[in-house]
Amino acid sequence: GKMTGIVKWFNADKGFAFITPDDGSKDVFVHFSAIQNDGYKSLDEGQKVSFTIESGAKGPAAGNVTSL
Results as ranks from 00 to 15, higher is better:
31 H>R: 13
41 K>L: 13
50 S>E: 08
47 Q>G: 04
60 P>G: 07
68 L>H: 15
62 A>M: 08
67 S>T: 03
11 N>W: 08
14 K>W: 10
4 T>Y: 10
17 A>N: 00
64 N>V: 13
34 A>M: 14
62 A>G: 09
67 S>H: 14
32 F>N: 02
13 D>W: 09
31 H>C: 15
63 G>K: 09
46 G>P: 01
17 A>T: 01
54 E>K: 05
65 V>C: 15
56 G>P: 14
20 T>S: 12
40 Y>G: 11
67 S>Q: 12
35 I>M: 06
51 F>I: 02
6 I>V: 13
57 A>M: 12
18 F>I: 13
27 D>L: 05
7 V>T: 00
63 G>W: 02
49 V>I: 07
62 A>C: 15
33 S>V: 05
41 K>S: 11
61 A>D: 14
53 I>L: 11
40 Y>S: 09
49 V>C: 03
2 K>P: 08
50 S>L: 08
39 G>K: 06
64 N>P: 08
24 G>Y: 02
11 N>Y: 06
18 F>P: 00
32 F>P: 01
55 S>C: 15
21 P>R: 02
47 Q>C: 13
63 G>P: 10
43 L>H: 02
40 Y>E: 11
11 N>M: 06
63 G>C: 15
34 A>E: 08
56 G>E: 13
24 G>Q: 03
6 I>D: 01
52 T>R: 06
1 G>Y: 12
25 S>K: 03
34 A>G: 06
23 D>F: 03
67 S>K: 03
17 A>D: 00
22 D>K: 02
54 E>M: 06
38 D>E: 09
43 L>D: 01
12 A>Y: 08
54 E>V: 07
33 S>Q: 06
65 V>S: 06
17 A>F: 14
27 D>M: 09
34 A>F: 14
10 F>W: 11
38 D>V: 09
51 F>Y: 11
56 G>W: 09
5 G>D: 00
41 K>H: 12
42 S>P: 08
58 K>V: 14
1 G>Q: 12
38 D>A: 13
44 D>R: 15
53 I>M: 11
48 K>Q: 11
7 V>N: 00
11 N>P: 01
59 G>D: 14
2 K>W: 14
38 D>W: 13
43 L>Y: 05
9 W>D: 01
7 V>I: 14
63 G>N: 10
19 I>T: 00
57 A>K: 08
68 L>C: 15
12 A>L: 12
24 G>S: 03
42 S>G: 09
6 I>H: 04
49 V>R: 01
23 D>H: 03
52 T>N: 07
57 A>L: 13
19 I>Q: 00
4 T>Q: 06
38 D>K: 06
66 T>E: 15
52 T>G: 04
30 V>P: 00
31 H>A: 14
3 M>S: 04
49 V>S: 00
14 K>F: 09
31 H>D: 11
6 I>A: 03
10 F>I: 15
52 T>E: 07
48 K>W: 14
8 K>M: 06
40 Y>F: 12
32 F>W: 12
21 P>Q: 02
47 Q>E: 06
68 L>N: 15
18 F>K: 07
39 G>P: 09
39 G>I: 08
28 V>Q: 04
27 D>E: 08
21 P>T: 04
25 S>A: 04
27 D>Q: 05
54 E>N: 05
4 T>N: 04
57 A>R: 07
28 V>Y: 05
29 F>V: 12
27 D>R: 03
68 L>V: 15
68 L>D: 15
19 I>R: 00
4 T>C: 13
65 V>F: 02
16 F>A: 01
62 A>P: 11
10 F>V: 15
28 V>R: 05
50 S>C: 14
30 V>I: 10
15 G>L: 08
35 I>G: 03
65 V>H: 09
32 F>I: 08
42 S>E: 09
47 Q>M: 13
27 D>K: 03
27 D>S: 09
65 V>M: 06
5 G>K: 00
56 G>V: 11
17 A>H: 00
1 G>L: 13
39 G>F: 09
11 N>R: 04
60 P>C: 15
58 K>R: 07
44 D>K: 14
68 L>I: 15
27 D>C: 14
25 S>Q: 04
24 G>A: 02
4 T>L: 06
9 W>V: 03
66 T>R: 02
46 G>C: 07
57 A>D: 14
2 K>T: 13
24 G>W: 03
13 D>L: 13
29 F>D: 01
20 T>Y: 02
15 G>W: 05
61 A>N: 11
19 I>D: 00
56 G>I: 12
37 N>A: 10
28 V>E: 01
37 N>W: 14
10 F>C: 13
16 F>H: 05
9 W>L: 04
34 A>I: 07
55 S>R: 06
24 G>D: 03
45 E>W: 12
13 D>N: 08
32 F>H: 05
18 F>H: 05
31 H>V: 09
62 A>I: 09
28 V>A: 02
28 V>F: 07
12 A>Q: 09
5 G>S: 02
49 V>P: 00
16 F>N: 01
36 Q>V: 12
4 T>V: 05
40 Y>L: 13
23 D>W: 03
11 N>G: 03
66 T>H: 13
13 D>P: 04
22 D>F: 05
56 G>K: 06
39 G>A: 09
36 Q>F: 10
54 E>H: 04
67 S>V: 06
63 G>D: 12
59 G>S: 07
10 F>L: 12
46 G>R: 02
10 F>H: 03
54 E>S: 06
59 G>R: 08
3 M>E: 02
47 Q>K: 06
36 Q>M: 12
25 S>F: 03
35 I>S: 03
68 L>R: 15
48 K>N: 05
67 S>G: 14
54 E>R: 05
21 P>I: 06
22 D>E: 06
45 E>L: 15
39 G>M: 09
17 A>P: 00
67 S>C: 15
2 K>I: 11
41 K>N: 11
10 F>T: 14
59 G>L: 11
8 K>F: 03
5 G>Y: 01
21 P>E: 01
45 E>F: 13
27 D>Y: 04
43 L>Q: 01
5 G>I: 02
15 G>T: 08
58 K>G: 14
56 G>C: 15
66 T>A: 06
22 D>C: 14
7 V>S: 00
58 K>P: 14
39 G>R: 05
67 S>R: 03
37 N>R: 06
36 Q>A: 11
31 H>W: 15
63 G>L: 07
40 Y>T: 08
25 S>W: 03
11 N>Q: 05
31 H>M: 14
30 V>K: 01
21 P>H: 01
58 K>A: 15
17 A>E: 00
46 G>Y: 03
54 E>P: 05
6 I>R: 10
32 F>K: 04
61 A>L: 10
36 Q>T: 09
1 G>W: 10
57 A>Y: 11
47 Q>D: 08
58 K>F: 14
46 G>D: 02
20 T>G: 04
48 K>M: 08
55 S>A: 12
19 I>L: 03
39 G>T: 07
10 F>M: 10
9 W>Y: 13
20 T>W: 03
20 T>V: 08
52 T>C: 14
40 Y>N: 11
53 I>Y: 09
48 K>I: 08
17 A>W: 04
53 I>D: 03
31 H>Y: 14
31 H>K: 12
66 T>I: 14
46 G>K: 02
13 D>F: 09
29 F>E: 05
45 E>R: 13
43 L>F: 11
31 H>L: 14
2 K>E: 07
62 A>Y: 07
25 S>D: 04
